[in-house]
Nucleic acid binder design. Structure first.
Lengths: 348, 348
DNA sequence: GATAAAAGTTTACGCGCGTAAAGTTTTTGT
DNA sequence: ACAAAAACTTTACGCGCGTAAACTTTTATC
């Protein structure tokens, strides 16, 4: 019995497979581009042949001849941040469900890498790109140029006027809820944030904090944590210790700009033996924003304001598919901001 | 001034670019495959032209004509787990440094997705693949077949005899150190693990625990947490509460199979008001394995046994490059296990 | 400065597939 | 049952690049 007689023989190309299936190559090609575009009977014959011989079209040859591929680029600033890992996971699964090939990239917090990624993404001829930029350190010129060439939807952090659309959470919604809750149930909070936040959302949150506090008739107070990079927990911890030791201004209610800072901050509180929470015996309340996947498991569990992960990822996907159907360009750029939801836990 | 006179004009293919650079296409092709393979003077001319016209070879045409591409596949079982995010980050950066194109995949904990990934990876003609399987639920037949076709190195979790090599941490080293430390400085621990662990490492750790305890003359005790999937913190928390309430056997020293379970477990302890640590006032000690990126920030900070991330990722990369140079096949399959390091923090 | 070696040029073919054009067969509607 | 429409077959070309072969030019060696 020679190899050709067995099921596992290797097929070189579509020509050979077409011969085996008894259908002409152009029709087989048509089938692979859209199985519904061929007659049910021929489709059955092709799929029968497919069962036995497990052939797949050469993706490189296919993509060479398409103007656009079936690829979807997904770029996040830092994948080791569980927040991005989680949102990337949702988006990726959605793309797969819809028959696209998501390709995931992480800028790893580095500007040059972000540029490289866009560069190689451009030559990949993706049908669309979902892009969460690094933010402050991003090269706007490069990104702008990229977005002119490749159908791109920004998410998480916005760059004014760049990309076909933006989808993200409404930072004002986060802060207004946290500040309102904290003041209503206790004292107005001091804001704990980084001096040089990597993400533009942090700046928006600071502004929202200030305006919210002023609106409520309180004096905004901000503690700026030193440190750079994406090791937010570490910064929250170290600067949290500094904060606790020097006790600047009001110190019984702290609002961290994001959960990762809060995770570090809570760790510092624990180490200093400061009871955190809303109980009678507690001397400090801590809240934050994002609803990081691990915030349920801090000690005490973190009161925070949650992204509407599902809404955001749904909308991102919806806008992407819409963009692809529109031929890669929208009439006008739209921004979609989703309100956040207060999540009451034990820390405040 | 027409478009051709400007710097930003688009170049269709290598033919056009070669004409602009004044070098023949075959030589330009040679340059892109290995810049060092052409004379310095011609290289300079090509790179000068490259500065002005920013041309890049069509990756699909390139890859179609290569037997193997410059792609490196990286597959992890669950990218939203910071452990894998972190190791993937290291590996990815190494590949980029060395001039390869890493492509990252996450099986998202799903067997079918793992199979799909291997399937599309196969048709990508990667030079090599670094693969951390799901483990228990993986389809061994499919993986075995894949590894016969594509040069693959397994990491993190081993499948006997599959792949060209395995690189990972030595589970016995983890457990022997934790058990030894806990017994030496206090009482022998009870093991807290999942009933149906997703990862084969968990099984090895259980065996190591039992044999280590017996060697030391103690009675092994195991608490098996109910629950499936990759939400380990949640399982650690819920079953931690159950554990604390029913107090099975010795309960003053708990060794969690991994840090993520411990994060949940510590959260449960906090909620029950149980002081954890090695201090006089503490009634419970908790330790675990992995040195998860967040274990420094638990309350109390988690005493654990750390993977040697650097050693493992270095070795994985080293083996991969070696494999590629060897033409995708090793004489014999080797397994490289790295010892872990005890990290003393506050929880035990 | 002669000569061999190295590098570059020209020409040509092949990779695997998308897709157009012209002709043939099958299906659909009445 | 017949005409029109739809689907399929055959033939052919193009995509952008790798690469081999034969030839020419530049560089290294003594």
């Amino acid at each position: 019995m020679d190899a050709r007689a067995m099921g596992g023989n290797k097929i070189r190309n579509m020509e050979e497979f077409a011969a085996l299936s008894g259908i002409s190559r152009p029709t087989v090609s048509k089938y692979f581009n859209d199985p519904g575009s061929v007659r049910a009977s021929t489709r059955a014959r092709i799929e029968a042949a497919l069962e036995e011989h497990d052939y797949r079209p050469n993706i490189y040859a296919v993509n060479q001849n398409r103007r656009l591929t079936k690829n979807i680029g997904i770029v996040v600033p830092y994948l080791a941040d569980p927040f991005f890992a989680e949102i990337a996971r949702k988006i990726e699964l959605r793309c797969i469900e819809a028959g696209w090939s998501p390709i995931l990239f992480s800028s790893h917090g580095e500007k040059d890498l972000e540029i490289d990624i866009l560069d190689s993404l451009r030559s990949m001829k993706p049908a669309g790109v979902l892009f969460a930029p690094l933010g402050r350190i991003s090269d706007r010129i490069v990104i702008e140029k990229f977005c002119r060439d490749v159908p791109t939807i920004l998410f998480d952090s916005n760059l004014d006027g760049i990309g076909e659309a933006f989808v993200g959470s409404d930072n004002f919604s986060f802060v207004s809820q946290s500040v309102e809750y904290l003041t209503r149930t206790g004292n107005p909070p001091i804001l704990f944030e980084m001096v040089r936040p990597a993400n533009p959302n942090a700046n928006k949150r600071r502004k929202a904090y200030v305006s919210m506090m002023e609106r409520l008739g309180f004096d905004p107070q901000i503690f700026q944590a030193e440190g750079d990079g994406w090791g937010f927990e570490e910064i929250g911890y170290k600067e949290g210790l500094r904060f606790l030791d020097q006790k600047p201004g009001r110190t019984d209610t702290v609002l961290c700009s994001n959960d990762r800072l809060a995770i570090g901050f809570l760790s510092a509180c624990f180490e200093r033996g400061i009871p955190v929470g809303r109980g009678e015996t507690c001397t400090l309340r801590v809240a934050a924003h994002d609803d990081h996947p691990f915030s349920r498991f801090t000690c005490p569990s973190l009161t925070t304001v949650a992204h509407d992960y599902d809404q955001v990822s749904n909308k991102v996907i919806e806008m992407l598919f819409q963009l692809i159907e529109s031929g890669g360009h929208f009439e006008s750029r739209s921004e979609h901001l989703y309100p956040a939801k207060l999540v009451l836990r034990s820390s405040a």
